[in-house]
Amino acid sequence: MFVINCPYCGEREQSEFKAGGEAHLVRPKQPTELSDDEWAEYLFMRKNIKGIQFERWVHTHGCRKWFNMVRDTSNDKIKAIYKMGEKPPTK
């Protein structure tokens, strides 16, 4: 059970949040122009990284805001948290 530092509310228990999977998957602006393969790539294919992963979380039972997290999926250590639209940390 993580402690998550919501960028809007501060530190809260994990039970207030939901995970939303891989981050920075941009919904194609013109889906109709994509091939079936390209669309499937967006829709289903995932990096599913073991190690440092950029992912999305939402403070469901709080401010309901989505934000991004950098987390090491091999040991669940949270490395950074940043708002939607912000640049991911490089280090």
Binding site: M1, Q14, S15, K18, A19, G21, E22, N48, I49, K50, Q53, E55, W57, R71, T73, S74, N75, D76
Partner: peptide, 14 residues
Amino acid sequence: TDDYISYSQKGSHD
């Protein structure tokens, strides 16, 4: 299952 990706072989108590 928990809803987040993890390879830690641990899940939430909840």
